[in-house]
Design a protein around this nucleic acid. Structure first.
Lengths: 200, 200
DNA sequence: ATTTGCATGTAATCTGTTACATGATTCA
DNA sequence: TGAATCATGTAACAGATTACATGCAAAT
């Protein structure tokens, strides 16, 4: 028997909305200040890079979509003689939509993907030396990243005011540092466990 | 002037290969033991859930592709009277390809995306009470997750043998626990910083 | 009988990456 | 004058989610 209900297009509620996180990342940035697509791309590479990323190709198409949806609008500025630059700003509609997203207390989703942990999960199939080399390589990379982050932190000589953009920035930087410190700790423990009763 | 080289389809090297991580996650699991698509789906929900995830729809289509590519093959088993089950196993080609992937020391990619951190980055636009509520909600969720993970850890009464599947499992579980502990610590610090000089 | 779990798939859509494509501006 | 950076876009493809779709088996 066929599914009559679905044949009549009943019973299966409206399609659930997609998350559109990129949309809100862009709206959030434009809520801080007006920017071009190029500047937004740079923001993703600097300010957001510890928790979000997007290529210019994706950003430009999202900007087009958000303009159509009247969440943002733009004015054209001229750099030099002829080079056109679109400076985007958030609309009132966009601001309202963004604030609505920001306030929502959504339950945590699935843990994010991590290729290295996946590799490690299968690493007992490797020679012990190779496994330790891979762990060491990973450790070095995380140490380097930690160094850069701690260097960024020195730019704050005191905790910023709670309602400032800098304060939020400070919180996420703290999170990034703690994450890298944890990663280094964990990798060191893994290496130790792999070496225990080692090759003498 | 048009790009003659590209018009002639020259000069722009071969398309770079995609990562196909799901492929290797599946090959890795089938390298441990033979399984059906259904069992693989369950493995993603249990053993791999702390660092990878995939829905059954994605898994079944990847299995089809891997079969075409001769990385895996299957035999049909009957459960009960008629219900057919495809039990997949990895081929020698698949095993070689998997080991090749496992050995590679790829540099760390971009930090993985984290919607909560993105929200927090914009959270100075919220009322202080709402911001703290969101942080508390997040903290509770991470505490719960930590509890479950620590409970899993009790299943290991000692560190398993280094070349066993259980040892790798132990390492990634340790990583998951440390990650959740760090998250709880970080969130507590964020809450404190948000409350400092608070509303008296 | 009815619900839960076993078992497998496809279609539509959304999200993200790589490659293609162009041209101006600035600095060495 | 050549390289790096500013500036914007499209097309093709890869990766992932949600919904659609079906039916058997086991337990209550």
């Amino acid at each position: 028997m066929v599914n009559v209900a679905s044949a009549l297009s009943l019973e299966y509620g409206t399609r659930s909305e997609s998350l559109r996180t990129l949309k809100y990342a862009i709206l959030g940035l434009l809520n801080q200040r007006n920017m071009s697509g190029y500047e937004l791309t740079q923001q993703f590479e600097s300010a957001l890079c510890e928790f979000w990323n997007a290529k210019h190709s994706q950003i430009y198409s999202e900007l087009k979509k958000l303009t159509d949806e009247q969440m943002i609008c733009y004015e054209i500025e001229i750099s030099g003689n002829v080079l056109e630059k679109k400076v985007y700003s958030i609309t009132e509609t966009g601001k309202a939509d963004f604030m609505n997203w920001l306030r929502k207390d959504e339950p945590m989703g699935a843990t994010s993907k991590d290729v290295f942990r996946l590799r490690l999960f299968f690493s007992n199939k490797l020679d012990q030396e190779v496994r330790i080399e891979l762990l060491n390589s990973q450790l070095m990379q995380h140490r380097l990243r930690l160094m850069h982050l701690k260097n960024n932190q020195t730019k704050f000589n005191k905790v910023p005011q709670k309602d400032s953009d800098e304060f939020s920035d400070y919180l996420v930087l703290l999170g990034a540092i703690m994450r890298e410190e944890m990663s280094c700790e964990w990798l060191k423990q893994c290496i130790e466990l792999c070496q225990e009763g080692g090759n003498t």
